[in-house]
Amino acid sequence: MLTIDNLHVSVEGKPILNGINLNVRAGEVHAIMGPNGSGKSTLSSVIAGNEAYEVTKGDIIYKNENIIELAAEERAQKGIFMSFQYPVEIPGITVTNFIKTAINSNLRARNEEKMPANIMLKKIREKAELLEIDSKFLSRSLNEGFSGGEKKRNEIFQMAMLEPSLSILDETDSGLDIDALKIVANGVNKLKNKNNAVILITHYQRLLDHIVPDYVHVLHEGRIVKSGGKELAHELEEKGYDWIK
C-alpha cells in the first residue's frame, strides 16, 4: 500500500529525515517509535502533504502512485488520513458541518453524488457511538475548548467517518488518560480490516498494549535504525532509547 524509498526531508533548509525506507502492506499495523526530535511527526506530516516540509530526495509511493507532488487534499481524497497530534481549533465550524463538508468533498473528488442527509446522519450517530461521543459534542465548534481526550476522540471519529485506506496516528496517545486511551484504541481496532493499514507514531509503548502492531520501527536522527516485531516495543520500554543509538 505504501512504500517510502530513501526519503530526505528538510524544514527551512535544515535536514530532518535522512533516508527513510518503509514498506506497509494492506492489513498491517506499523508502529514508529523514537525519542523527541527523531523526526516522527515530520514523517507523518510529509506523508499527509504538509507544504511546510520540503522533500529533497526520495519517493512516497501509495497504491502504485508517487504522491510527492500531490496536494494534501488530493492525498486525503485518495484515502490517506492523519490524526493530528495537535488538532487545530476552528471556531465557527461545528464538528458535524465539518465532517459533512469533508465527506462530500471526498465524494465530489471521486465524481460521486453527495451523501444523502439521512444516511449521513445515521453514519454520524453510529460512529459517534463507537467512540462514546455525546451528540451535544457534535454541534460544538471544531476542537474549540475540547479537552486533550476529546480532541483525540474527535480525530478518530473523523477517521471512522472517512474510512481511509491508510491511517497515520500521530501521537494519538499523548494527553489521554487510560479510559480515553482504551476508547480510542478500541475504535481503531474496530475500524481495522484486511484492506486498510495503520501507522502509529508514538513515543511510548503504552498505546501498543491496546493496538498491537505487526512491526515496530525505531526512528533516530531521521533514519530507521532498527525494525522488529511487537517485542521490540517492550524492549524499548525497558531499556529506553539509548541502547539503540
Binding site: G49, E51, A52, F81, V88, A102, S105
Partner: peptide, 25 residues
C-alpha cells in the same frame, strides 16, 4: 487550520472559504 481542513480532503479554495465563513459566522 488550512492544512487541517485540506488534510481531510477539502480543496484549498473551499477550505479558505470555510475559514473565512467561520471567521464571519
Amino acid at each position: 487550520a488550512l492544512f487541517y481542513l485540506r488534510a481531510r480532503g477539502i480543496p484549498k479554495k473551499e477550505a479558505e472559504a470555510l475559514l473565512t465563513y467561520a471567521f464571519a459566522n
